[in-house]
């Protein structure tokens, strides 16, 4: 059985090895980007079918962010919505024959978790200023600063490992069941995998929202937005 933590490269471009999950990930990104471009190219006030479906998706994500953060969701929808839609497709692509989820690889989930980590910093600094955001690390006491830093790092690690563990372990379980039982038994497990992928995409996006929301209204920081 090959290790699920390492992936052999498909081919190399110059000195850069390219793995299958990278290709899948790029294809998903390109497909989602192209679909978004085509759907938003001709927006009208009286929407057609495709535009109505798109508006439903966007307004649902907006509503979820508004419920969690209690503020205008427009600055955060691009990040959270992109994460959710990408993860939804990436987790579910396992059901397409010959394709494997890029999120079942350590590198993809690490990149996504680092993205959330830096977004938290970016949105926190943008809302509170650099000094204001840094001040929340020494609240309520400077003695707790190491704990704050540690919690930032461990939650990023947990974000990475949660997504990886769920998607990859589902793939492993599926492989074991396929090797034990025939055709019909794995199909309900694959359907359950779609559900797991949806829940994990939701949880990842929701946790990113919670972390960004906590950074934006960092305790002890001077809220610059509410002054004006």
């Amino acid at each position: 059985m090959s290790s699920p933590l390492a992936e052999s490269p498909l081919f190399t471009i110059g000195a850069v090895p390219v793995a299958g999950s990278v290709l899948t990930s790029f294809a998903i990104t390109a497909a989602l980007g192209l679909a978004s471009f085509l759907l938003t190219r001709r927006l009208s006030v009286a929407p057609g079918r495709a535009q109505s479906a798109l508006e439903l998706v966007v307004s649902t994500i907006d509503g979820e962010i508004r419920d969690v953060m209690q503020r205008d969701p427009s600055p955060y929808t691009p990040l959270v919505g992109t994460l959710f839609l990408y993860l939804l497709v990436a987790n579910s692509i396992e059901v397409v024959p010959l394709l494997h989820s890029p999120t079942a690889r350590l590198e993809t989930t690490m990149a996504l978790a680092l993205l959330v980590f830096f977004s938290v910093f970016f949105y926190g600094v943008r809302a509170n200023g650099l000094r204001g955001y840094m001040r929340h690390f020494v609240q309520p006491s400077p003695l707790l600063a190491p704990i704050h830093v540690l919690s930032e790092l461990t939650r990023t690690f947990a974000l990475m490992m949660r997504l990886l563990g769920n998607v990859m372990s589902h793939g492993l379980v599926l492989a074991i069941i396929v090797s034990l039982a025939g055709l019909l038994v794995p199909i309900p497990i694959m359907a359950f995998g779609l559900f797991v992928g949806l829940v994990q995409a939701y949880i990842f996006a929701m946790l990113a929202t919670v972390y960004v929301g906590a950074a934006v209204e960092a305790e002890g920081a001077s809220p610059r937005e509410s002054v004006k």
Binding site: A158, I203, M206
Partner: peptide
């Protein structure tokens, strides 16, 4: 929603 976030933490 809180339950989902909490379950993710426990998980």
């Amino acid at each position: 929603r809180t339950l989902f976030v909490g379950l993710a933490m426990i998980e």
